[in-house]
Write a protein that binds this DNA or RNA. Structure first.
Lengths: 106, 106
DNA sequence: GCTTACCGTAAGCTATGGCTAACGGATTTG
DNA sequence: CAAATCCGTTAGCCATAGCTTACGGTAAGC
């Protein structure tokens, strides 16, 4: 997981894949159940889950013939880390260069 | 800016566009200067800046014949908001379902 | 052992997105 | 007014990514 952040943000950028992720985040679920609530086929969901797993965003646990997917906090942590470091820098820049700026929302 | 988050994460998912954004974040700069530090043409940078602007991630200010681009905090705020709300939910789920879980990193 | 349920993978198609090259508009400078 | 600078937009090309269909593999149940 060298460039975990790039993988994570790339994974969550796709709307369908993000829907899969948000569905898994609500409650762990098997692949078929996830696919049932989405407008794509089950193999498509499998592919999305593979990408999410490689990005450290979900985990799987085998249970009989089913694979239960759940959230993996590491992916979200990578996102948060990037955003946090960025947030500070952005605000610092903003404060430095917008000292006497009073015009807003053009 | 109804679905600002979707636009923002989609904009930052592309590596080149993210490089443009990070470059702008360091210090406001005109288009030509940004393009000079990247392996793509100037029109490409212009297109990326357009996407970033529509996502609420950058702002422009005209200065003579040049357009100075700077960070717009609203895009980052949308990202942070989504991530924060998500973080709480994800941790809650994680705690609820991983009560007696002791196995880690398989 | 055979069937059924559940799932991952491979192949193939299509749409989308990012890039370059060429053009045109706006502003400053002589 | 003419030339130059800086930039946005368009058209077109090509690689990539997501979807479906078909297949194979594993675990439970009869």
């Amino acid at each position: 997981m060298a460039n975990g952040f790039a993988l994570a943000i790339d994974a969550l950028a796709d709307p369908t894949r993000r829907a899969v992720f948000e569905r898994v985040a609500i409650r762990p679920a098997p692949v078929g159940e996830i696919a049932a609530g989405l407008p794509v086929s089950r193999p498509a969901v499998s592919q999305h889950l593979k990408v999410l797993k490689e990005a450290g965003l979900v985990r799987e646990r085998q249970e009989g013939t089913r694979r239960i997917y759940r959230i993996d906090p590491r992916g979200l942590a990578a996102l948060r880390k990037w955003l946090d470091g960025f947030w500070a820098g952005a605000l610092a820049e903003f404060k430095t260069f917008a000292d006497g700026a009073s015009e807003e929302q053009p």
